Each structure stands twice: as structure tokens, then as C-alpha cells.
Simulated scan of single mutants.
Amino acid sequence: MLGRSGLTPHLDGAGSYADRVVLISGAGGSIGSELSRQVLACGPRKIILFELSEAALYQVHQTIDRAAAGTNIEVIPVLGSVTDERKIRKTLSVHAVQVVLHAAAYKHVPLVELNPLAGLQNNVVGTKILVNQSVASGVERFVLISSDKAVRPINVMGASKRFCELVAQDASRRLAGRNGPVFSIVRFGNVLGSSGSVLPLFHDQVSRGGPVTVTHPDVSRFFMTVQEAVHLVLHAGSMALGGEVFVLDMGEPVKIETLARRVVHNAGLSVRDEGNPTGDIQLKFIGLRRGEKLQEELTVNGRRAATSHPRIFTAIEASLSECEIAAGLRALEQALANEDEENARANACNWVAGNAQVAENAMRAPEGMYGPHCAASLPSKIWRSQRMRSECS
């Protein structure tokens, strides 16, 4: 599907997870469940499966519990939200958690665009709570799973993930030279076949006789298999020294149209288009959805540094000050408390690094160019965010 060779798994950093108590938030998701499987193979003392969805938690618990049979590894399912501070505090304390792998997030761009308050509450406030409680409970290592959509975001989901990165980096900076978790962020693109990704959608559309829908002929994305992505996440987390934004080498971006055609051909069918009017499956272009880009990026400025692993790099990017992070969080939490979508969008976007110019462009853009997403906030909201930044400086 991706037109490249696969990654051969070999985790040198398994010792970071061996004989440790590891909590995986969002354990029932595509990334979380694979994290659970690969961490289990590292020989932890205990795995805490923390998940909001009862159905997803039941499924991943059944899978991991069976795989752990015959070992001394405890598998503990915990049903709860990362926004529940008391639940987080109790779970970290009671189980003496040493490693946190934070994969819990609302990630579907169109859904978060339509539900910005829920997306920002879960992603940003949930990360803040998990970060702060991890510090308080003596966690050794904290790995945040991020997304390429956090780079110069033009949607609420991307802005929320960038804010999460900044919160984790801020905690790492405040704890520098003191005992506390080693924080790191791992940023990567799409996971092939994950929940909500295009591959299951294309397979479903082909099975129903089409059409196969593609947003735009030029749209492209970075892809990895879930096994590859999680392997590199664990390796990056084990090599972290504190505050790094690790970027995975995902190969060349793949055009979504190319992926759609491969799905059709792999099903033994042909695409019906101008060159083949008698083909089996029609390819239909439906336009970009709210908050979507044509291409995604993995770094804000294109600068990255090599690490000891050929497929893992560190992004060289600016971040916000402690004062700016605190002010941004206060403003966002106030907007969430007031159920003020407009202000929540504006604050989320105007505090994330690399997004100020996008917001300014959105204000001058023709109607519909960007869509009603977070960057197109009212000038008054942008002015208030800028005023708070000046007060911090």
C-alpha cells in the first residue's frame, strides 16, 4: 500500500519498560491497544489500561489479559477519563505508576471541528491534568503521542495537540535539574488502517460497489503501519532526556488518490474514470473537509536533528514561556467554563507556536478558503490573546 519496505522491529530501549508499572491512556484505541501489546512484550511488572470507552476497554483488556497468561504481569483495566483529576490521581498513586504513555485524545478532525469544547477539554485539559498528576506522584517517564496536524494547525484538533506538546515541554522545562518525569513528545502522521482512517473507509466503499471518495486530487499524507509507529514511539520514549519533540521518519507522503486506486486494484477491480469508462469502481472527488490541509508537515520550520536511531529525529522548534503557557491555559479554561466556542477556538489557535501567521491569513482570506475552523477567529479575540502575550513579556 505504501510503496516501501517495512520497518524491522528491534527495541533496544525495552529496559525502560521492563519490570515497570506502565499506564497507557487511551488504551482501547488503535495506537493505545498496540502500545499495550508491545509494552507487554517488554516484560513490565504491571500494565494499567486506562480508557474512557467501556467497549474498547473490555476488548483490549481481554486481548492483553490473554496474552499475559502464564506470566507474572498484572493487567489492570481502569475505566475513566483523563479529565477526571481525582481518578487520575488515585490511579497513579494506588498503582505507583512509573511510566505514562499518553495516547488518549479526540483525533477526528471534522468531529472536533463540530465539537470544539469537548475536543479542547479532553485533549488539552486532560493532558494538563495527567502531566501535573504525573509530576506529583513521582512518575519516571512520560511520553505524549502527538500528530503531524499539530504543525501550523488550521483546525481545532491540530491546535489542541500542539497545545498538549507545549504543556508537556513546559513541565519538562520547569523540572529541569530536579527529580521528576522525563517528558518527551513523539509526533507522526497517519496510521494505516486505524480507526477513522481512509483505508477502512475505502475498503468499505469498494465492498459496496463504490464510489470511492477522495477529498482532492492533490491531497497527500504521511503513513505508517500501527506496528511501525508504536515501535518507534517506544524507542523514542526510552532514549528521551527531557523535553524533546521526536519526529518519526515516515518516508515520502502518499497521495490519497494513489492509495484509493491501490485499494481498488488489490480487490481485483479497476477504477472507472475518463481513461477507463467501463471500469468497476468510480473515483469521486468531494472537496476538502473543514480544517483539512492538502499536505501535512512534521516540523514547523523543516529543521530537525538526527538521533542514534535512523528513523527518529528531534524537531528544532521554539516553544512558549512558562508565563505564556499559564496565561493560555487560564484563558482556554475560562472559555471552556463559559461554554464559549468562539473564544475557546481563538485562544487555542493563537497560543500555539507557528500559528499566529495562519490566524492573520485566515482573517484576510476569501470566504470559505479556510472554512469555519479555529484560525478564522474574530479580530477582538486575536487582540486579547496578543495583549496577554505582551503582559507575559
Rank of each mutant, 00 (worst) to 15 (best):
R4E: 04
I129W: 02
R330G: 00
G196K: 09
E165Y: 09
Q227I: 04
R261D: 04
P110C: 10
V186P: 11
A348V: 06
G189I: 09
P116I: 07
T127D: 11
N276L: 06
A348I: 07
S16M: 13
V230F: 01
G287Q: 13
G279W: 07
G243H: 02
I88M: 10
V82F: 08
Q205H: 08
L241E: 15
M1T: 11
Y17Q: 01
R208W: 10
L283D: 10
A306F: 06
K255A: 06
G268L: 10
P181E: 12
Q386S: 09
S207E: 03
F50Q: 01
S238D: 05
I31Y: 00
F163P: 03
N347T: 15
H235C: 02
S146Q: 02
A236T: 04
V212N: 08
A236E: 05
A353S: 14
P310D: 06
H235R: 07
P310G: 06
E342M: 00
P9R: 07
P110W: 12
K87T: 09
N155G: 05
M363C: 01
L241W: 10
S16V: 08
F142G: 12
S160A: 08
R345H: 06
L144R: 08
A96D: 13
V156I: 13
R152Y: 12
F246T: 12
C164R: 08
S380W: 02
N115Y: 05
L232R: 10
D280W: 05
V198D: 09
A356C: 07
C164W: 08
H102R: 06
Y370K: 01
A365N: 06
E297L: 12
Q227P: 00
A305F: 05
L329N: 08
I256Q: 09
D280A: 08
G210V: 13
C42L: 00
L288I: 07
A68G: 01
I47F: 02
L166K: 05
L52S: 13
H61S: 13
A18L: 07
Y106A: 10
G328L: 13
E85N: 07
T225D: 01
N301F: 04
Q98L: 10
V206F: 12
V167P: 07
A136H: 05
C323K: 05
V139S: 02
V39G: 03
V191A: 10
E244L: 12
F223Q: 04
H373D: 14
V233Q: 02
V186I: 15
S197A: 15
S195P: 00
V109A: 08
K149S: 15
I256W: 03
E140S: 02
A150R: 10
R45K: 15
Y58V: 14
L269S: 01
L175N: 09
S385T: 11
N190M: 07
G26Y: 00
R178E: 14
G6T: 14
R262A: 13
Q227T: 05
